[in-house]
């Protein structure tokens, strides 16, 4: 399951992408993911936090306490390692998505 989440196009990549724009806390991430995916990705909190803590253990994100609306929240920040992982996964995903699109649209294979 963890492998699936950290694979290109997995939930891990989506979270890294959200954090590449700004630091966020858990609830913000779920809301932002829902909004930006037109409610396609409805991530459960029970899935989000273990995944965030896994990314933290891998060094892709770091956590810090920040204030939001007078309350202290645990914010997550994308590290350089996380940025590199995101770039790698995005490239792999684009290759994969392009290949699927090529098959679905029945295009001519390049270099054939």
């Amino acid at each position: 399951m963890a492998k699936e989440k950290s694979a290109p196009g997995g939930t891990g990549m989506l979270l890294l992408s959200l954090l590449s724009r700004r630091d966020m806390y858990g609830y913000e991430m779920i809301e932002e993911l829902r909004r930006r995916s037109n409610r396609v990705f409805e991530l459960k909190a029970g899935t989000l936090y273990p995944l965030l803590h896994t990314l933290e253990a891998q060094g892709h994100v770091t956590a810090f306490d920040g204030e939001a609306g007078g309350r202290v929240r645990r914010y997550y920040h994308l590290t350089e390692s996380g940025r590199a992982a995101l770039a790698e996964q995005s490239a792999a995903w684009n290759t994969y998505a392009g290949a699927v699109r090529g098959v679905l649209e029945g295009g001519e294979p390049c270099g054939a």
Partner: peptide
Amino acid sequence: DALARDGLRQSPL
């Protein structure tokens, strides 16, 4: 280390 946090920061907003 798993529980350590780097202190209170200002809101990233």
